[in-house]
């Protein structure tokens, strides 16, 4: 039996770091036994959110970890949780930021609402001037 990949906290200070966050999310999702489609969804969401952290948050960190929750049938269900944190300007209007097609930058406005659709749990904690933390979780089905 091969060793499980360890989760951890990665810096997001460059576009190369965004790729590293994707790679760590991929290895944890695969080790948790997630289907290929679900792996692709959590990794794509991670890519969107890591880019947001870099471009809008001015850089920050991503903590990638394996999580478990009790399941009546299988004993425990595994999943992957990723917490993106930055000390950037924060989001003044959360409803607007989560709306389809709205963008403060030059993007398509798919980042936050798109990432939210790709995961099972999505939590956005932000305050103007105090930074932004986005927590996402995807569970094995």
């Amino acid at each position: 039996m091969s060793r499980e990949p360890a989760g951890g906290e990665l810096p997001i200070a460059s576009h190369d770091d965004v790729v590293r966050v994707r790679q760590l999310a991929r290895s944890l999702a695969a080790a948790a036994g997630m289907s290929l489609v679900d792996q692709t969804k959590i990794v794509t969401a991670a890519s969107e959110l890591a880019r947001n952290t870099l471009v809008y948050g001015g850089g920050g960190t991503a903590r990638v970890e394996r999580v478990e929750r009790p399941s009546p049938r299988a004993g425990a269900r595994a999943g992957v949780r990723i917490v993106f944190s930055d000390d950037g300007p924060g989001i003044p209007d959360v409803d607007q930021a989560l709306a389809e097609g709205w963008t403060s930058g030059g993007g398509l406005g798919l980042g936050l609402p798109g990432a939210r659709r790709l995961v099972d749990e999505f939590d956005l904690d932000t305050e103007p001037g105090r930074g932004t933390t986005v927590t996402v979780t995807k569970w094995c089905r």
Partner: peptide, 14 residues
């Protein structure tokens, strides 16, 4: 394009 990528892209909204 891989099937998993296609499924994810559509769900993403692209």
């Amino acid at each position: 394009m891989r099937p998993a990528v296609a499924i994810t892209l559509v769900e993403l909204g692209l």
